[in-house]
Amino acid sequence: MYRRTVLAAATATLAGCGLAPSPPSTNGYPETPPNAFFEFGWDPDGSAYVVEFARGNRLTADNTGALRVRVADATPDGDAVTTPWVGAVDGVGDDGSGDPRADFPLSPGATLRVPVESPGPVRVVWVAPDADRSRAVGRWRRESQPTATPEGEGS
């Protein structure tokens, strides 16, 4: 009786523990999010932004949850319009903007047309696979483009 109790308790205690400690692994590599750089254009005839994935890492389901293009002040009422480019993350960004316009993988050279009524500031937003973080990876304002300042010339 006692023996069975002890054996049962010992089994429960050790359940879930492997016999050998788990060694370090390389599963954490890479730790940083993928790079993605974008170029923007405005098509006045089609009233649409044209966004090009200019250079960077190939975006896959392993390194990206979603990529979205968000245009502020995109309607006469001043509303923003978000267009899902690739990927989808459950419970995030469920704003009725439809299915992603492309499938993984997304490689440099890919382009996306974003029709809008009004060409407000545009951002490309990358979302992590677990949807625990996001960041703007590209920004553009049609009405005022930046001008590069040469090195060593203070301004």
Binding site: R141, P146, A148, T149, E151
Partner: peptide, 15 residues
């Protein structure tokens, strides 16, 4: 070339 401006319109070169 990086955008250093708070209004995102100020591009500078850095090495």
């Amino acid at each position: 070339d990086v955008d250093v401006g708070v209004d995102r319109r100020d591009v500078r070169s850095v090495r």
